[in-house]
Design a protein around this nucleic acid. Sequence first.
DNA 1: ACTATACAAAGTAGGCTCAATTTGTATAGT
DNA 2: ACTATACAAATTGAGCCTACTTTGTATAGT
Lengths: 191, 191
Amino acid sequence: MSSPDTGPPASAVTDTSRRAAVLDAAMVTFARFGYRKTSMEEVARAARISRPGLYFLFASKEALFRAAATQVLERDLVAVEHVLADTGRPLPDRLAEAFDQWAGRYIGPLARDVPEVIGANPGLLGEMAETAPRRFEELITDALAAETGQEAALAVARTMISTSIGLKHQAPTREFFLARLKTAISLLLRP
Amino acid sequence: MSSPDTGPPASAVTDTSRRAAVLDAAMVTFARFGYRKTSMEEVARAARISRPGLYFLFASKEALFRAAATQVLERDLVAVEHVLADTGRPLPDRLAEAFDQWAGRYIGPLARDVPEVIGANPGLLGEMAETAPRRFEELITDALAAETGQEAALAVARTMISTSIGLKHQAPTREFFLARLKTAISLLLRP
DNA sequence: ACTATACAAAGTAGGCTCAATTTGTATAGT
DNA sequence: ACTATACAAATTGAGCCTACTTTGTATAGT
């Protein structure tokens, strides 16, 4: 719809990082107070811009939330992709770090609210709510299939993902999560 | 406090099963409406006794809930124990059925509310809230250790439990849960 | 070993109003 | 490519009151 290709690409990088910074501030605020109780004023304050300026960047509160959540998910998927692509490292290490990026990093008392507020408002996210977990499953499956050549790669990937979801609910700390996850990975990679 | 050892044991069995039936009706009602919005009147109606009669059996709403939740947890643990004790059957089958009794049976749209209402009111449960999962972990660990003799039995048990918790959140149906769980079990029992 | 009826004290829901907040837009300025 | 200020319309929250429900107990009856 609203294309940013209006002027010269002089400050394209600046524009992009400004947008990203605003989205970061927005997600922190959404995570802290929840979608409903977060006002555009509060987001603007957190992003250190004016409220009209915020509306200049994002057409509505919904669009802002969608963009913020999308950035988080996309960023994490890219991180996972990069970690898994580094085939110089042992597979178990790469898998552990991939799950840490995808889930472990959101274990703490503050960080927990991020996936919570995203998961609590699937209606605002549209497709992303379903495609992101699917893409993650694909990335894990491919990494497993590439290395171990298993045809059980999908089954192993799905089991690991279920385990990580369970651990996310059980783990009081990121360290707990990671320790248990590494155990699970080594148990599932043995055969 | 109120001991039932007042008269002859003539109708002890009847007493016990009456109590159990009342507790079943109570748990169904608690699960349907939640603890707060469930009235003693409603429980009495579901149990087909009078409200004063209900107070004759249980001193308070809290005591009633505690007893109902305890019965559910204890009943499931006994079922798990029995299933695992039948060493004539293959270990994977027994494990799958154990997890089905403990978690899978609560997957459906109606059944889901039971663990939910129990989990949502840990303050009313006291010790049971922590000891029951611990006892389940012990039962699974012992079954694994007895058969496979592993010293990794605890790690395998914990991984299976985490997987089952994740699956409980993912699974739309009991069949989905069971299918994925069986895959996980066979993957974790291979080495 | 209960049921039926009744009751006080406490808690909860519903409705209602008014003030405050919030959204989205506009306008003028830099 | 923004900020500052302002504004209408809609939503929300606070406070308050009243009516109803609920808890726990008591009492009489079978």
